[in-house]
Design a protein around this nucleic acid. Structure first.
Lengths: 216, 216
DNA sequence: ATTATCTATAGATCTATAGATAATGC
DNA sequence: ATTATCTATAGATCTATAGATAATGC
């Protein structure tokens, strides 16, 4: 678990020795690429555009990465780090009491709302990653879902939720994760019919419905 | 609503006069392209590969389409037609009674299970479509979600579900749609931990929980 | 004569690197 | 001397079309 708030990338080779410089330049690259990828997609963005927007020459860009896919991995990883950071921070703030689940859901959905384009990007481009890095990105997803699992398990243990089978808790955690994402990948419809606050309210009712029902 | 079971594509220009031939060749193109796109993605599939797998020359391919994006649109539309067909057929079979919602959910989730790769493809490549066709594809999504809305609305009117606000019914219909998709785009995790039958059972409990709870 | 199909290729990219140049530190 | 950066380009594609050829129907 450790400190995951900063990027956990250590395995992309670089020609440059100075670690601080590598971190600085890669941050430039990520910031430039994320905008371009959101705008035109990974495949329609060229390495030259990434270099230009990063303030590097094409030659320098390739001192910090080995391939265009490397940039995509850096971007995906940075996005997940930011989401996880946002959720963990919310977790600190929210109380431990009865309604902590609703609070966590609310904060998480607001993170999704804020990171709309970024989450969409991950849905669209994860499959463009080489298998090894795709797996790393999927691990990130699992870890974020795991946060909700822990919250649910604690409430269930405390008797503040009906006792639920572990498998069911696991699935509800995935549902929460995905219903947050849904606000981004169905935004073309939802944002025309709901405000984010209404969306959060209704989805909380939906999710908590099962818990109150106690049918399992 | 008319007959949506066959493709509703009429607007892609072709050089070929014979309408039957156009339909035949486009079916070849779709069948070839869907396999290639699933395997390597839209951008990494070349038009030559599509032509070869369709049994056409590259020149002939371009008699039936105007651009590579046309092929993607044909593919997305064909996939949605098949999904909608599957759901509508299930709707015919299921009774009108108490448990029709659970039955429809079950059949829809089985369609998602069967069309796993196809649904994933739509999630990944819809954004690669020119805006006009992307909108058409999104309309397809809305229409499929609309089927669930109707089922929910009928049950709510009949008093077989608690009376729910229309906005809430609409949202639940989207949730059903997306929780079916979730089986495909989280398959890398879910299929390792659940069998499809367990997934359907638990998600039905989850979805119906809100209805039984009657908290709204 | 018209329609459908094919081959050959124009024209336009795009990724990644080689080799030269500038900046830094001993 | 070492490290970081740049310019110029090799090499490899890939989409889409022009123009030639074959098949069909009057």
């Amino acid at each position: 678990m450790q400190n995951r708030h900063t990027s956990n990338v250590v395995n992309i080779p670089t020609q440059v020795k100075n670690r601080n410089l590598v971190e600085l330049r890669r941050r430039q690259i990520i910031d430039a690429a994320v905008t371009l990828f959101i705008e035109k997609g990974f495949h329609k963005t060229t390495t030259r555009q990434i270099a230009r927007a990063s303030g590097l020459s094409i030659g320098s860009l390739y001192e910090y990465i080995e391939s265009k896919e490397d940039v995509l991995y850096l971007v995906c990883d940075a996005i997940h780090a930011e989401i996880e950071h946002g959720v963990n921070e919310a977790l600190q703030r929210t109380g431990k009491g009865r309604n902590s689940l609703a609070e966590v859901i609310r904060e998480y959905f607001l993170v999704c709302h804020r990171m709309n384009d970024h989450i969409l990007l991950i849905y669209q481009e994860t499959q463009s990653l080489p298998p090894q890095w795709r797996n790393k990105v999927l691990e990130n997803e699992v870890r974020i879902t795991g946060i909700f699992m822990q919250v649910l398990a604690k409430l269930s243990d405390n008797g503040e939720l009906p006792a639920l089978q572990e498998k069911f808790i696991e699935l509800v955690a995935h549902n929460i994760t995905v219903l947050g994402h849904m606000w981004t990948f169905r935004r073309w419809y939802l944002a025309r019919h709901y405000r984010i606050e209404d969306y959060i309210q209704m989805q909380s009712d939906f999710i908590l419905g099962i818990c109150n029902a106690g049918t399992l």
